[in-house]
Simulated assay, not measured.
Amino acid sequence: MSLFSKIVIGVIIYLVFLLVYLPANWLVSIAPLPNNVAISGAEGSLWQGQASLVTIDQRQIEQVSWQLSPWGLLVGKADIDFKIGNRATPVSGKGSISWSFSGLRANNIRFDLPDSFLLAGARLPFKTQIDGDVSLMVEILEQGKPWCEQLSGKLFLNNTNVKNQYGVYPLGNISLGLSCLDGQLKIATDETQNVLGLTGSAILGESNLVKVSAKIKPTDAQPKDLREALSFLGRQDSQGYYPINYQGVVPGL
Rank of each mutant, 00 (worst) to 15 (best):
L178H: 08
R110D: 02
D182E: 06
G49Y: 01
L18I: 07
L185E: 01
F4E: 13
V54F: 09
I56P: 06
E43C: 10
Q193Y: 08
V8W: 11
S152W: 11
Q50F: 14
N158M: 08
N161G: 05
S98F: 04
Y14E: 02
P170S: 02
I13K: 02
N173A: 05
I97S: 02
L157A: 10
D182M: 14
Q58H: 11
G103L: 05
G234N: 00
P218W: 04
S135L: 08
A120G: 00
L124I: 05
E142S: 08
S5W: 14
N245H: 04
T219D: 00
T199M: 07
V138D: 05
I174M: 07
F117I: 11
P218H: 01
S2V: 12
P223H: 03
V11E: 03
G10Y: 09
Y14W: 08
I30Q: 04
P223L: 09
I140D: 03
G41T: 05
Y14F: 13
F4L: 15
T89S: 15
N35G: 12
K145T: 15
L18T: 07
S52W: 03
I30N: 01
C148M: 05
P34L: 10
I109M: 00
G177W: 07
G41H: 07
F232P: 00
G234S: 04
N159H: 14
F156A: 13
T189K: 12
Q67N: 13
I9A: 15
Y21K: 12
S116L: 11
I216M: 15
L141P: 03
V8A: 12
T189Q: 10
Y169V: 07
G95S: 03
G200H: 02
A188E: 00
Q50A: 14
L124H: 00
L141H: 03
I80D: 06
I84C: 06
Y21M: 05
S5A: 13
L157G: 09
I61W: 15
F17D: 02
L209H: 06
G248S: 02
L46G: 01
G72I: 14
L230K: 02
V168T: 10
M137A: 10
R110P: 10
K211R: 13
I9Q: 10
I61V: 09
F117A: 03
V54T: 05
S45G: 11
S65F: 10
A229C: 04
S201A: 15
K127T: 03
R227T: 08
K94W: 13
G167N: 00
Q193C: 00
I39A: 06
N108A: 13
G234F: 08
E142A: 09
V11D: 00
N107M: 06
L124T: 02
V162M: 01
E142Q: 01
A88F: 14
D131Y: 13
L253Q: 04
W99K: 09
W47K: 00
V212H: 03
P32K: 06
E43I: 14
G205W: 07
W47S: 03
L119N: 03
A51M: 13
D220M: 09
Y246G: 06
Y21H: 09
V75Q: 06
V195P: 12
D220N: 15
L198S: 12
V91R: 14
L53M: 14
L185C: 10
K217Q: 02
N173Y: 04
L178N: 04
I130C: 08
I216Q: 07
L253M: 10
G93F: 09
D115F: 11
K211P: 00
R87M: 11
S152Y: 11
D225H: 06
L18P: 01
